[in-house]
Design a binder for these strands. Structure first.
Length: 684
RNA sequence: GGCGAGGUAGCUCAGCUGGUUAGAGCGCAUGAUUCAUAAUCAUGAGGUCGGCGGUUCAAGCCCGCCUCUCGCUACCA
């Protein structure tokens, strides 16, 4: 173990509140780890903050008629408070809109520029005048100059496979607006990631950099190594580190006008600027946490962030030259909810601020459940029923109940003061030995990022306590052997005290409460083997640590979830008003599907032959996930027939089948409800 | 379609580089017990380790094919 740790949790994007999936994935595991290390008296810095840049926030501001700053201010406030109330113990919760961050990111960028880590390229790039933005290669389509395929992309023709540049395309179009884009000159700084493949492969797979062993790759998750190798083996490419945007960290160069740093360059540097902000306040040296070989850097993230933390950011850190690389990137998978993926847009989530409001004082209950169900190596699922079961049958029955019986008996027999007593019996010594082994067992599991297992091991100490009481039955012995009862109660309380230490990383609020009841203060991991309950020690009044989760509560939460899901289905903003002439431009007819077959090498596409009056048209439609090719022939559908024909996967599509889509993405055909409507009938 | 990660007891999950009768917690059954929020303790029943084939003295673990789930990516006017 090293002595200094820099722990980060992914910066939450400041355009929405946090839900239990975020917590289980990146924040709770890190918090457990951090609390453990602090208890071991390590020098630990735990940092996080809001990620406030990027195009998504500007788009949202535009939509809501407000400013990006107003959006990020709102969610920064909400999330900071939620983390604090829940008990995620950051040293600092910073934000990337802070001037200190802008300065830090710009300095970092300049250093890389100075080291010639970037390749600057000036090029004429297509620009969408309607949306006022430059278009990435993939956002442009046109006719391939080599094979005349009409839907080739700006970077490659899917038909003939030739690599293209957008300007090669004949008749280019913006895929966003459909308009013809204009050429405008712009320049960007690119990171040539392909130059870094060799050392990355060695560093990720063997933990070795420049001949030095930096980490043990067997401690990295399969998922992380697998995904990195997949990227590296597929060949890394240069990636633009700047964007034409006006929201973000300005490119600090003369020719950087109107450009900002790419959000994935900017955000991880947020970890560094947060450290600086903290160090400034605390009078510490921030460099110790980032530029010292005796410091371990660990990034806790969700699986969607793997490449950024395990490939791109390490390249940047190494290029800069002064920084250490992450020792591990323990990425978690995703948490599902009641049989369905958590979805912000469908409002299918348990929101942290709402939980905190509806379940005051029940942070540790949620922590316990989320750690039990944590998606450490694959996706897992949270249900309210599970929440109830885990709390009632484990946390309350095993932990809460053991503490309660130990304290209640002590009060009953000795008014809460430990009496003078004899030595442990030889059977007691076995229990004592077992008890003493827990600190190391639990610690070792936490150090290997096995939080679920670690928590269960912690619970085994409470189980040991329950078994000790059941085996020794002090409530019976009290009538025959009072001296023996004193020893038993002392050991039971000793177990309780030790439980307060090893449960603290998982259940910090409970641990404090328990230590108050036991009249103990400021215990940490290193106190574990001390005698914590000496003769004469007075304990405080006992109260219950947990309350039962009732069936009604579970039912209520499930119902609330279902209801809020429906609420989200209210129609989106209406589009601009059109006149009748506009409407009559659409030629919509009823058609009969006479033939259907799946388009090879695609998941969603079906090629249809639709008979409209006397004509038969070919239409390619993205409905294969909702209809099989076999069930389609014979169906009547509405079809827009005067839509400009377009080639899709090499097939000319002459029209568009009208479909209704609900909030879950389910599709249904718009069909006449009357057999008298024959093929070719006009829809209006 | 390409790539990555998964598919182990009713549920949630462990099983490190292949090696004795495949593990844990919860649930379930039976018994014990009453200090404790009907909580606890003991014992037990549950698995052809997604399917098929192969390598090996030996496979949940290695190889091939298939299938299902999730993620990234492509396609969805």
């Amino acid at each position: 173990m090293k002595n200094r740790y820099t722990i980060t949790s992914a910066l939450p994007y400041a355009n929405g509140p946090l839900h239990i999936g975020h917590i289980a994935g990146a924040y709770l595991p890190a918090d457990i780890y951090v609390r453990y290390l602090r208890s071991r008296n390590k020098d630990v810095l735990y940092i996080c903050g809001s990620d406030e840049h990027g195009a998504a926030i500007t788009l949202r501001a535009k939509k809501e008629g407000t400013t990006p700053q107003a959006i990020v201010d709102k969610y920064h406030g909400i999330n900071k408070k939620a983390f604090n109330d829940f008990g995620i113990d950051f040293d600092i919760y910073h934000r990337t809109s802070d001037p200190l961050h802008h300065k830090t990111a710009q300095d970092f960028f300049l250093k890389l520029e100075e080291k010639k880590s970037f390749v600057k390229k000036t090029a004429e790039q297509f620009y969408d005048e309607e949306n006022k933005q430059f278009l990435a290669d993939r956002y442009i389509q046109g006719t391939c100059p080599k094979c005349a395929y009409e839907a080739a992309y700006g970077d490659q023709c899917e038909k003939c496979g030739s690599a293209l540049s957008p300007k090669d395309l004949i008749n280019p179009k913006s895929t966003i607006s459909g308009n013809k884009p204009v050429l405008k000159e712009t320049s960007h700084w690119y990171l040539p990631m392909q130059d870094h493949e060799e050392w990355l492969r060695e560093w990720i797979n063997n933990g070795v950099l420049d001949g030095k062993k930096l980490h043990d790759p067997s401690q990295w998750k399969n998922q992380v190594i697998g995904q990195c190798n997949s990227w590296i083996d597929g060949g890394l490419h240069e990636r633009a580190m700047t964007r034409d945007l006006n929201w973000g960290v300005k490119v600090p160069l003369k020719d950087g006008d109107g450009k900002v740093l790419y959000v994935w360059l900017d955000a991880p540097i947020g970890y560094i600027s947060a450290t600086k902000a903290w160090a400034e306040k605390e009078g510490k040296d921030w460099k110790a946490y980032w530029q010292n070989d005796d410091t371990q850097l660990i990034h806790f993230i969700g699986k969607d962030n793997i490449v950024f933390h395990a490939i791109i950011f390490p390249i940047l850190l190494k290029q800069h030259g002064d920084f250490i690389l992450p020792e591990n990137v323990p990425a978690n998978a995703f948490l599902n909810l009641e049989g369905d993926k958590i979805s912000t847009s469908r409002n299918w989530a348990v929101w942290l601020p709402e939980y905190l409001e509806e379940f005051p004082g029940k942070q540790d209950e949620l922590r316990y459940v989320l750690t039990s169900l944590a998606p450490e190596s694959r996706d897992s699922e949270f249900t309210w029923k599970d929440y109830q079961t885990r709390i009632n049958n484990e946390l309350l029955s095993i932990y809460g109940n053991f503490i309660n019986r130990a304290l209640v008996l002590t009060h009953k027999y000795y008014n809460g003061v430990l009496p003078e007593c004899g030595d442990y019996s030889s059977e007691d010594e076995i229990v004592v030995n077992e008890m003493n082994s827990f600190a190391e067992k639990v610690g070792a599991l936490i150090e290997r990022y096995r939080f679920k297992e670690a928590q269960n091991e912690m619970m085994n100490l409470a189980r040991l306590g329950n078994k000790y009481l059941a085996d020794n039955e002090p409530w019976k012995l009290v009538k025959t052997d009072e001296e023996r009862v004193k020893v038993i109660m002392k050991l039971a309380l000793e177990i309780s005290a030790k439980l307060s230490i090893i449960s603290a990383p998982f259940l910090p609020h409970t641990a404090v409460e328990l230590q108050e009841m036991l009249n103990l203060k400021e215990l940490n991991w290193d106190n574990y083997s001390d005698e914590l309950m000496p003769v004469g020690h007075q304990i405080n009044k006992a109260h219950l640590l947990f309350t039962k989760v009732e069936d009604e509560l579970v039912a209520m939460q499930v119902e609330k979830l279902q209801k809020s899901k429906i609420l989200k289905q209210v129609p989106l903003k209406e589009k601009a008003v059109i006149n009748f002439d506009d409407f009559t431009k659409l030629d919509i007819r009823i058609g009969d599907i006479i033939e259907a077959k799946k388009v090879p090498k695609t998941n969603k596409l079906i090629e249809l032959k639709v008979k409209v009056g006397e004509n038969v048209r070919t239409v390619v439609s993205g409905i294969a996930e909702h209809y099989s090719a076999e069930e389609l022939p014979g169906k009547k559908v509405s079809i827009l027939i005067n839509l400009e024909p377009r080639k899709i996967k090499g097939i000319l599509s002459e029209g568009m089948i009208l479909m209704a889509e609900n909030s879950e993405g389910k599709l249904a055909m718009i069909s006449p409800d009357n057999e008298a409507i024959e093929s070719g009938s006009v829809v209006r």
